[in-house]
């Protein structure tokens, strides 16, 4: 499994412009989505640590539930939905591109 450096197969992939296209686009998607999750989560944690009162507020005047609960649930649900977004693109368009590159390389 230990490949010698610069195997011709991999060299061919590197010369394929589609490969660089794939890497650029998919990495950008992964970075943007990671940033959304991490910024959202750490922003939430900073509110927990420094401004807990914001999350204490009731959802409406008569409500017992605080706004903190729907916000917390939204973090879980939205970050799960983002895994769906990533899987959709990575398993769709990007996988097709990967398969194309593989086909062209191994011909």
């Amino acid at each position: 499994m230990h490949s010698p450096a610069n195997t011709p197969v991999y060299e061919r992939v590197r010369r394929n412009p589609k490969f660089h296209e794939l890497v650029r686009q998919r990495s950008r998607l992964a970075l943007v989505l990671s940033a959304i999750v991490l910024v959202g989560y750490y922003a939430f944690m900073m509110v927990v640590a420094f401004a807990p009162g914001l999350l204490h507020q009731p959802m409406s005047n008569e409500s017992s539930l605080s706004v903190g609960f729907p916000i917390g649930a939204a973090i879980i649900i939205l970050s799960w939905l983002l895994t769906g977004v990533y899987s959709h693109f990575a398993n769709g368009r990007f996988q097709d591109l990967t398969d194309e590159i593989t086909r062209e390389t191994l011909q």
């Binding site: 991999y10 490969f19 890497v23 990967t98 590159i101 593989t102 191994l106």
Partner: peptide, 8 residues
């Protein structure tokens, strides 16, 4: 290349 494409 392998980590990105799975080739190999």
């Amino acid at each position: 290349v392998r980590s990105q494409t799975g080739i190999g």
